[in-house]
Design a protein around this nucleic acid. Structure first.
Length: 418
RNA sequence: GCCGCCGUAGUAUAGCCCGGUUAGUAUGCGGGCCUGUCGAGCCCGUGACCCGGGUUCAAAUCCCGGCGGCGGCGCCA
C-alpha cells in the first residue's frame, strides 16, 4: 500500500469506467480506473470531484496497465483535501493552447500538467547536475552579496535600491566577488540570480535570471577554463539524458549527447566567416545578436551545436580580462549554443599593476575599485572563470522558443507579479 | 531609447480591409447519451467585442488618445 498525492488533472467517463488522472511531483500521472459496481464507494466520491481537486489515495499498482499516459493504481482509500472554488482559468490538459502571457501568469498552476512540469523538473536537474560536477571537481559553493555598492563590471544597467542612507544596486554578476575569493579558495562556484535593468524586449533576455558562476585559480591558461565550461555542459546534458528520459519524452525533445572538446573559434575567424557570408561585422566590437545567430547556423552545418568564440578584442570587453601581449586581443571567450550565447568568461588579469593600467585604459578610476583591487595585493594566482545563463542553457537544451518558458516567475520589462 | 504587429466568452480564435441579421468556431463549464478513454466521441445549453472620446442614421469593424500584450533593433548574458 502506498499513499500518493496530487491534483486531478483529467477525468473521463467512458461507458462504465471512470478514468481519473492525478499528477503530483511526478512526470507520469497516476491513473485510477473506477467501476461503479466494483469500487462503489470510491466511484461515488470521485465522480463528484472536479478537475483541480487536491487529493491523496492509498492503493497499489494495478495488475492491468491499460493507460498510455500514466501509471494505473487500484485505490483503496481516497482523501480529499481541497476542491477548486471555480473552474481552472487555463487548460491543464494541454488541449487548448494558451498565449505565452497567459501561460506566464498561471505558470504555477499550469505546472500541474506533466508537460509543463517537465521543464521545471529538468531545470532542477540542471542545477543538481551542475553542483554535482563542480563538487566532484573541487569547487566550493559560495555566496556573494546581491546588494552591492557599484556595478563594477560596467556595461549593464543596474537596479537602484535604497540601502539605509546610501544608494546601492542589485548585483548584475558575482564576477568581482568570486574573483576576490580566489585569494583564499582554489576553486569556487555560485548559483545566483543576475539582475539587469536593461529595457529589453526579446525572446532571450530576462531582468532577473540565474547563473552558474565558476571561478578557478592556479590555471596555466584560459584553456583550463574552457575545459571546465565544456565538461560542465557535457555533464549537465548527460545527466539530463540519463535521469530525465521520461520528461524529455513528454516534451518531445531529442537531446543529443555532447562530446567535448567543443570547437574553439577565434574571434577573428568568426569575423572572417561572417564576412565571407556577407554579414557586416566590426573587428573591434562584440558580435551582434544577428551575427551570433548567423554564426550558429553556419556552425550547425558543420555539426557544431556548441562552440567557443575565443580571443575577443580588448575594445569590446570588461577591464578585468587578461590582455594578450599585442594589447589588442584578450582571453575572453563566449560559449554559444545553437547561435545563442549561454556563457561568457575568460582568464582574468591577476597582476595588480596590469589591473590598474587596465582600469585607466578603460577610463575608469582605480579608486572606485579599491575593495576589489585589495584582493590582488596578497598573492593572487592566475585565474579565470565564467558565468553560464541557466535559462538560456535550458532554452537551448529543450528547444524552447522563449527564455521566459525556462523560469517559473518571470521578471521582464513589464512583469513584476506574480 | 527607436520601430513594427496585436487586444473579441475562462482559454484559444473567426469576423475588421469593404461599417448594417441573433458576433461564428474550438475547448472549458452545466446537462444528457456512450462497451477503458489516451487531445475519446455524439446531442443540448452557457458565455465575449480592453478603456475613453470622435465620425455616422448605424461602429467589434473607420479615426484619435490611453492602457495592456508580442516581437525586432539598440544595449545586454
Amino acid at each position: 500500500m502506498t499513499r500518493l498525492c496530487g491534483w486531478i488533472i483529467r477525468k473521463a467517463k467512458v461507458g462504465k469506467v471512470l478514468i481519473v488522472e492525478i499528477c503530483g511531483n511526478n512526470t507520469k500521472p497516476y491513473v485510477l480506473a473506477l467501476k461503479e459496481d466494483r469500487d462503489r464507494e470510491i466511484y461515488g466520491l470521485v465522480s463528484e470531484l472536479d478537475v483541480g481537486t487536491a487529493i491523496c489515495f492509498e492503493g497499489e499498482l494495478a495488475p492491468e496497465q491499460k493507460s498510455k499516459r500514466g501509471i494505473e493504481y487500484i485505490a483503496r482509500k481516497i482523501e480529499v483535501y481541497a476542491k477548486p472554488i471555480e473552474p481552472l482559468p487555463v487548460d491543464i490538459s494541454g488541449k487548448v493552447p494558451a498565449l505565452l502571457d497567459t501561460r506566464i501568469k498561471y505558470r504555477w498552476l499550469l505546472a500541474r500538467n506533466p508537460v509543463e512540469k517537465a521543464i521545471f523538473r529538468i531545470r532542477a536537474g540542471v542545477l543538481k547536475a551542475a553542483r554535482e560536477y563542480l563538487e566532484k571537481n573541487g569547487f566550493i559553493e559560495v555566496q556573494t552579496p546581491k546588494i552591492v555598492a557599484a556595478g563594477a563590471e560596467g556595461g549593464a544597467t543596474l537596479f537602484k535600491v535604497q540601502y539605509f542612507e546610501r544608494e546601492a544596486y542589485l548585483s548584475q554578476s558575482p564576477q568581482l566577488y568570486k574573483q576576490m575569493l580566489i585569494s583564499s579558495f582554489e576553486r569556487v562556484y555560485e548559483i545566483t540570480p543576475y539582475f539587469r535593468a536593461e529595457k529589453f524586449n526579446t525572446t532571450r533576455h530576462l531582468n532577473e535570471s540565474w547563473g552558474i558562476d565558476v571561478e578557478q585559480g592556479f590555471i596555466s591558461g584560459v584553456e583550463d577554463v574552457l575545459q571546465t565550461a565544456e565538461n560542465l555542459v557535457a555533464y549537465i546534458v548527460d545527466y539530463i539524458r540519463t535521469n530525465y528520459k521520461e520528461d524529455l519524452e513528454i516534451l518531445g525533445v531529442d537531446l543529443p549527447k555532447i562530446t567535448p572538446p567543443f570547437k574553439r573559434l577565434k574571434f577573428t575567424e568568426a569575423v572572417d566567416i561572417l564576412r565571407s557570408e556577407g554579414v557586416e561585422v566590426s573587428e573591434t566590437d562584440d558580435l551582434s545578436d544577428a551575427a551570433e545567430k548567423k554564426l550558429g547556423e553556419i556552425m550547425a552545418e558543420k555539426k557544431h551545436d556548441l562552440y567557443f568564440i575565443v580571443g575577443f578584442p580588448w575594445s569590446s570587453t570588461g577591464f578585468y580580462y587578461m590582455r594578450e601581449e599585442d594589447g589588442v586581443y584578450t582571453r575572453k571567450f563566449d560559449l554559444d549554443y545553437k547561435g545563442l550565447e549561454i556563457a561568457s568568461g575568460g582568464q582574468r588579469e591577476h597582476r595588480y599593476e596590469k589591473l590598474i593600467e587596465a582600469l585607466r585604459d578603460k577610463g575608469l578610476k582605480p579608486e572606485d575599485f579599491d575593495f576589489y583591487l585589495e584582493a590582488f595585493k596578497y598573492g593572487m594566482p592566475p585565474h579565470g572563470g565564467f558565468g553560464m545563463g541557466v535559462e538560456r542553457l535550458i532554452m537551448r537544451m529543450l528547444n524552447l522558443e522563449n527564455v521566459r518558458e525556462a523560469i517559473m516567475f518571470v521578471r521582464d520589462r513589464s512583469r513584476l507579479v506574480p
